[in-house]
Design a protein around this nucleic acid. Structure first.
Length: 576
DNA sequence: GCCGTTTTCGGCCCGACTGTTTTCAGTCG
């Protein structure tokens, strides 16, 4: 039973209670518990068997009992009862934008609509407008929304979201007087994927900003357009080359409530709920316009002011998930998070010797241009056939070429690395006598992704125990949107890494983002050091470092925790 | 349904926007 399956069941219970018109706080409780479980780095099944479900914030005795029932029997009787009351297709109606629990209820009870296809037919045949609360416009909007839903809108890669933000920023600044502009939401918190983008603006000319926003060339649909808030659907070309859709909201803020608005729209929801309840406890009120005591405004212009008014230091956006950051802030124990400028190099870089697109010299030049002190070249090993992995001889020849190149470089060092496959039984793809010829070796999984959890754990632990393996690269081995993470016991893997002095990688490749922030935090807690690498296959991809640093910050990591924030003279002995 | 160095009961965020409506309910974030 995976955490995702448990979370999905709880979300579904919440949705069904919502449709049935249950108390909204009960509904919220199920969703909040589900979100908390999605954010866990330990198996909820393990917590259940240890009787520690109550440790999860938002999980009380009722939900804990249901989780225990689920992981032991594979079902939740209460969930089954609800499913028996609500036709299967009704739940899906909730996914359509513009349809909430009340409309679902009306459609189902009054028109007997229990699935998407029937709803579409009813809208097409103008049968919805007969119901109170529905009209011509609602029918048209629903047809559009059903179409959008069918296109399957998934979360955007952080890399792609950044490009959309950049394009919109350039467009808005070119067409309207923009004083300040910041993308908030999960983008600012640097989540690995982004559900929608919230752009905040201050401007002396609200109308022209709004007009520029809704007339951006890639806007496919305008959901709403108000005086201070608009919402659109943007079409973009993704990293994968396909077209995707992303919702973008624009909010106009006043300069004197900029900080409160930025805080509010950055979230997360759970962080904000926690802050608001703190405010209430202090006799204060916190909303998107400021911190207030009665009619008196205490803060609003800057985020620092808002947090200070609540008795807290400013909390970096990447930490705002209500996972202990508020308590840490109260104790004055927020970590001094790693910054992009702390990064001195990148250990995971490919060239056209294997599946990269640019030659060694170009990748080295691109790394130098970023102001790094060193870069490690880590092309593939022979078993990575699709990636044109290097034979031992080819790898040694590349090593000699790099040694040669280093002679001409001043104030910059190229390290000879490899990304060596972990084979099925846990053996490395190069023999030890070849591995020891590299300055360092990354170990990673590129095949046999579906072996059972126990075997997979033993396989990776064996690799980590190889004395020539220095970094466990992209530990989940997932590709966002196309390949699920491997099943593995990360507690055991991190313990092995800590024991053997093997660094754990936070891979910033746009489709990898592996580890996630919370996993990186768990690795550190297990005693590991980490690296943030881009896995770049071309020069521009070296720029993904900022997203990897974002994940590291989400993992509460400091510069001291990251090998590639260390000076070279400290890196070298670590790798040997 | 969750939560509690003020509470084991009574709180739990609320404002913008839309569409249908003659004053407001539903959805969304």
């Amino acid at each position: 039973m995976t955490n995702e399956e448990v979370a999905a069941a709880l979300h579904e219970i919440g949705d069904m209670l919502d449709i049935l018109g249950e108390d909204r706080f009960r509904v919220v409780s199920y969703h909040r518990a589900a979100r908390a479980i999605e954010g866990l780095t330990t198996d909820v099944a393990d917590l259940a068997s240890e009787g520690r479900l109550g440790d999860i914030p938002g999980v009380g005795s009722a939900i804990a009992d249901k989780i225990t029932e689920f992981v032991t029997t594979g079902r939740i009787a209460y969930h089954e009862e609800l499913k028996a009351r609500i036709p299967a297709g009704v739940l899906e109606l909730l996914q359509v934008r513009g349809i909430g629990p009340k409309k679902v209820q009306v459609l189902w009870q009054q028109l007997g609509i229990t699935d998407l296809a029937t709803l579409e037919q009813a809208a097409k045949h103008r049968r919805l407008r007969r119901i109170k609360g529905f009209g011509e416009k609602t029918e048209a909007n629903l047809l559009k929304a059903i179409g959008t839903y069918r296109q399957g809108q998934s979360r955007a890669l952080l890399w792609d979201a950044a490009r959309v933000v950049d394009a919109l920023r350039a467009h808005l600044e070119a067409h309207a007087p923009v004083a300040r502009l910041e993308a908030a939401g999960s983008f600012r918190r640097m989540r690995e994927t982004v559900g929608d983008v919230d752009i905040l603006v201050t401007t002396p000319d609200v109308r022209s900003v709004m007009r520029a926003f809704t007339s951006f060339r890639d806007v496919k649909q305008v959901y709403s357009e108000g005086e201070i808030k608009s919402s659109v659907l943007v079409d973009y070309a993704g990293y994968d080359g396909a077209r995707h859709l992303l919702q973008v909201d624009l909010e106009i803020l006043d300069a004197d409530s900029w900080g409160a608005g930025l805080q509010y729209f950055t979230g997360s929801k759970d962080h904000n709920v926690h802050l608001r309840s703190m405010a209430v406890d202090q006799g204060l009120k916190l909303n998107e316009y400021g911190v207030f005591r009665g009619e008196h405004t205490l803060a609003g212009a800057s985020e620092e002011d808002v947090y200070r008014a609540l008795g807290l230091p400013w909390i970096p956006p990447e930490l705002r998930e209500d996972r202990g950051e508020i308590e840490a802030a109260q104790r004055g124990e927020l970590p001094d998070l790693v910054k992009p400028s702390d990064i001195r190099g990148d250990f995971h870089v490919h060239t056209n010797a294997t599946d990269g697109t640019e030659p060694l010299e170009a990748m080295v030049g691109a790394a130098r241009a970023l102001g790094y002190e060193y870069v490690g070249i880590s092309d593939h090993s022979p078993s990575a056939v699709v990636a044109f992995g290097l034979t031992s001889e080819q790898a040694l020849a590349q090593r000699d070429r790099i040694r040669e190149l280093n002679r001409d470089l001043k104030g910059f060092t190229v390290l000879v690395g490899t990304e060596c496959d972990i084979l099925e039984g846990g053996a490395m793809d190069y023999p030890d006598e070849v591995l020891k010829e590299f300055d360092y070796a990354l170990a990673s999984i590129h095949s046999k992704f579906t072996v059972p959890r126990k075997e997979m754990t033993a396989r990776v632990v064996a690799a980590v125990e190889n004395p020539y393996v220095n970094v466990l690269a992209h530990p989940m081995a997932r590709l966002i949107g196309s390949r699920d993470p491997i099943e593995i016991d990360f507690d055991a893997v991190f313990a092995a890494c800590a024991r053997t002095g093997t660094a754990v990688e936070v891979n910033a490749g746009p489709t990898r983002m592996d580890l996630t922030g919370p996993q990186a935090r768990a690795a550190k807690a297990a005693g590991c050091v980490l690296t943030v690498d881009t896995d770049a296959h071309g020069g521009p991809e070296l720029g993904a470092m900022r997203f990897g640093v974002g994940s590291a910050r989400r993992g509460w990591l400091t510069a001291a925790d990251l090998v590639n924030a260390w000076p070279l003279e400290r890196v070298k002995p670590f790798f040997r």
